[in-house]
Design a binder for these strands. Structure first.
Lengths: 260, 260
DNA sequence: TCCACGCATTGACCTGAATCAAATTCTGCA
DNA sequence: TGCAGAATTTGATTCAGGTCAATGCGTGGA
């Protein structure tokens, strides 16, 4: 069921067929949310992991005075929280941007699966690593780039991530975000986002119409953004196999020929 | 040896005496760095975890044009990288702010320790969780707060974290940061940082002299910063024991009476 | 088909923060 | 003790981006 997740994890480390089956069987139930619904509230004690199957969501934080900061985008294959600790007190909220379908996996089931299969454990670790890298990149993006660079950078990231899970054509994808959302992501006012987008359009770097984003010349946008996508795909299966002396217990799972 | 680490982890989940011993024995060697040295370079393939024993360091990212963003501060007890995947390609650099002593633990040793002791595994997971929470908070800090709030927030966080590892008196601690460092942390120019600091001093919210930071009225600074420290200490040992039905394999380790 | 509401766009103006440049004060060191 | 380089401070000026306010446009629902 969680095909995007499996695809993503497999793309990282390589998952044996067994591991893929295990993951599929872990899913307890599937839930739907319509657009603009809070899926998880800050402060909630979460006992399962929700895997996005379809649709888009975001994680955000909010101050009492209403200011809001989007701290993450969640695409199919992404997890709504860390898969290691249960229950976890979540300190951000998750909200659907479109209608969303999620698969729920009991925390305890994930933990046991990780106990049983080192391949699965490794896959989730790597995924967590990548999530952390994205968060660091976001901090840097907001902290040191200009408005134009920030937005360009965000668009590069979104496009790259969607491509990785097969949700973008070569050069375009849907972008179900309002300009206000974008502003709350990169720390700019709505009005300014509007102007920057126009500028990017005028420069021929993007097309954005009816929630459809097109990046005709990715290299151009990347350089306008100072975007270096390497933080998005930590996985180095080759490097791993070559250099990592895996401990005994891991050897079996790692030896799977699933690496493509 | 890594007393601060053990203290921190124990404070989170509770570590059995055995686990504490194990961690101590894991340390392979200790390294020294003088101030302002790059300890890990972006792009390096890291095979060990470095635990800060003494001193302060920071993680940062840099663009080709020289702009720099500090993405993390590392205090005694903190890890310089994620303890799950080896080798890891690090996508930020780590640099000492003062002279620093670090303990190095082989990645494989950590992994086996986690395999053998669920308590240790859990401890590192929680620590990773907390690190991620801090990173999210930083994104939000830079993205949505005003200059004054940002700096106040940073100071609140630093003080709170240092207190947690016993490195701050009730209301003061050392702050071995230049105003330029602070600027690169919160996305402001040095000059502006200077002015804000003066403002905070004038408001009686802080004293900062000769690298010594004092916060006479923490509640006041906290409210100026909209600081809510709950993201810093995820751990809910009580909650955990009460609600989390630990899987069989974990039961033994979790049953340790080490919770204080 | 039409209406209403949310979103995008535009313009005028303001302000927080950056930049530039020059003191002044520390601090480590000889 | 004195000196050099670094860090802090100050002032003047500029500018990126915010705010306010109005208008235009698209879309989904009745």
């Amino acid at each position: 069921m969680p095909q995007h997740l499996i695809r993503k994890l497999d793309h990282c480390v390589g998952l044996s067929g067994d591991d893929q089956d295990t993951l599929t069987r872990l899913v307890r139930d599937v839930a739907w949310f319509s657009a603009d619904r809070d899926m998880i509230d800050e402060g909630a004690a979460v006992r399962q992991v929700s895997v996005i199957l379809e649709g888009r969501a975001c994680g955000y934080k909010q101050l009492e005075d209403g200011r809001r900061q989007i701290v993450a985008y969640l695409f199919p294959g992404d997890l709504c929280s860390t898969p290691f600790v249960f229950p976890t007190i979540i300190n951000y909220s998750v909200r659907s941007l479109t209608s969303v379908r999620v698969a729920r996996i009991e925390g305890q089931d994930i933990l046991s699966a990780m106990q049983r299969s080192a391949g699965i454990a490794r896959a989730f670790w790597l995924d967590t690593l990548a999530t952390a890298a994205i968060q660091r990149e976001w901090t840097a993006n907001v902290g040191l780039r200009t408005a134009r660079e920030r937005i360009a950078h965000l668009l590069c990231e979104i496009m790259t991530r969607l491509r990785a899970v097969g949700l973008a054509d070569r050069d375009s994808c849907t972008l179900p975000l309002t300009q206000e959302d974008i502003g709350e992501t990169v720390g700019l006012s709505t009005v300014h986002v509007n102007r920057i987008l126009q500028d990017l359009r005028a420069s021929g770097l993007i097309t954005l119409k009816r929630q459809q984003l097109t990046i005709p010349d990715f290299a151009a946008l990347r350089s306008a953004a100072h975007f270096d996508g390497s933080y998005l795909c930590h996985p180095r299966p080759d490097l791993d196999r070559k250099y990592a002396p895996v401990p005994q217990q891991f050897a079996t799972a790692m030896a799977s020929p699933a690496l493509s």
